[in-house]
Design a protein around this nucleic acid. Structure first.
Lengths: 240, 240
DNA sequence: TTTGGCCAATTGTCATGACAATATCAGGTC
DNA sequence: GACCTGATATTGTCATGACAATTGGCCAAA
């Protein structure tokens, strides 16, 4: 066993990563039973709470199912990657496509009522407005509008072209914690059709999002629309 | 304190419900700090792990944010109801609309390749096929197609008209645990436009879902499409 | 005034122990 | 053969204790 007890990586995380890897690699096939918590703990030299937490992490991802009296089993069905708090930029790089960006607007705007409410700032206060077209392998995938609070005014165009918005925010010391999204659909406007290189009045997949950092403050509000033939959302729900 | 130590309801759940209620009612305003774990445990006569788990439940819902060295705070932004493993039927009743159903088809079909893969059954094996139009306050909201494994053949039309599919399954002793959903958009077919009482070639919000029960076996596969002016998805993401 | 370091507060991680609840299974009884 | 019963296995809940890591503020020194 290659558990690193001195490093900064928690033991339960090391264990959960190993188990998850075993599931995704097929080493633990669908429907197979996991070793029980007590035995697994003894074998690894870990306490039961630690092992239990490791397993719980994977249950929360929807890869394992526990039943008291029975044990823990791998869920059936082809496993897919889970939905995380990521940006479209991250999604594209993870799927081995080459992302690029057309920056349409990067300017300071005073917050109207809706923006102010979503960002939790005073109406009329300055905000940073960004509008971009995201491309994957040179094909337009999404038109994205974002509003950021005052303190981010000063973000350079070059940053947004070379990296995703979330990367830029992370590099400024902001870590996202919670995001609330609404996903819907509507017809495209003529301008959107042109930008996305699709026919007029095509169906668009839309997503509105407000993201909060680890202090609970809103750091981003965005309205995005996606080409539904090139992008869709994947959600795994787990009942507790 | 009204903690019930003898009842079947876990202590951590009783605590988390109380805290969540306090947040939703505004008793704990956005940005306010929660009493620290140790003190809260002492005040309630509970151990720290129990209190910690109670708080963690709410953090996972995106209502609280913890920072080590600082404490636990209520997230900013208007709180919305969380996303759960529910059916559209439940959603509608929760929003005080009157749901009803037009049953278009309820028949046995042999599984084609796609259905067999999604349900984890052999190709050619019998499945139950259901097609419904869901209405809210007599206005059509969604067209839903569902495939269920062999054992559910025998579900009565009356069940599906009076209750949601998930209710019917629950009454047969099936409890959903994990669901994988794909959310996208496309244009409506002429038939869908007629059923949903919308114009031709309108934008539709689509959702494909495979649901698994607590033994990890697929119990339902569905392809739904929604009127985007009447329905949208709400997702709360929490980074760990 | 500014800077650096120390200290207190708070959450994060881990161990040990105990009992409860639930499902399976074998065996006995009617 | 069907049904009840008990034993067993396994996860669910809860308590207690300890130490680590991070943050923020205070205070002293430059």
């Amino acid at each position: 066993m290659d558990l690193n007890r001195s490093g900064p990586i928690p033991l339960y995380f090391q264990v959960s990563q190993r188990i998850e890897k075993a599931i995704l690699s097929g080493e633990l096939p669908a429907g197979s039973r996991l070793e029980n918590e007590v035995a697994l703990g003894q074998r690894l030299g870990l306490s039961r709470p630690t092992v239990r937490r490791a397993i719980q992490e994977i249950v929360d991802k929807g890869l394992l199912v526990r039943r008291r009296g029975i044990g823990t089993q791998v869920v059936h069905g082809q496993v897919t990657r889970k939905v995380e708090l990521t940006s479209l930029y991250d999604d594209l790089t993870n799927t081995h496509k080459v992302p690029s960006t057309h920056l349409l607007a990067l300017e300071t705007r005073t917050a109207d009522a809706k923006t102010a409410e979503r960002l939790g700032v005073a109406e009329g206060s300055p905000t940073l407005y960004i509008r971009r077209v995201r491309l994957a392998d040179a094909v337009p995938v999404a038109v994205m509008e974002n509003w950021l609070p005052e303190e981010f005014i000063g973000i350079e165009p070059n940053d947004l072209v070379a990296h995703g918005l979330y990367q830029v925010l992370r590099s400024r010391g902001v870590t996202m914690r919670v995001a609330r999204q609404h996903i819907g659909a509507r017809k495209s406007t003529n301008e959107e059709s042109m930008l996305l290189e699709i026919e007029k009045n095509a169906a668009l997949l839309t997503m509105d999002r407000t993201a909060f950092d680890n202090s609970g403050r809103a750091v981003e509000f965005g309205q995005h629309c996606y080409r539904p033939d090139l992008y869709s959302f994947e959600v795994t729900l787990v009942e507790k």
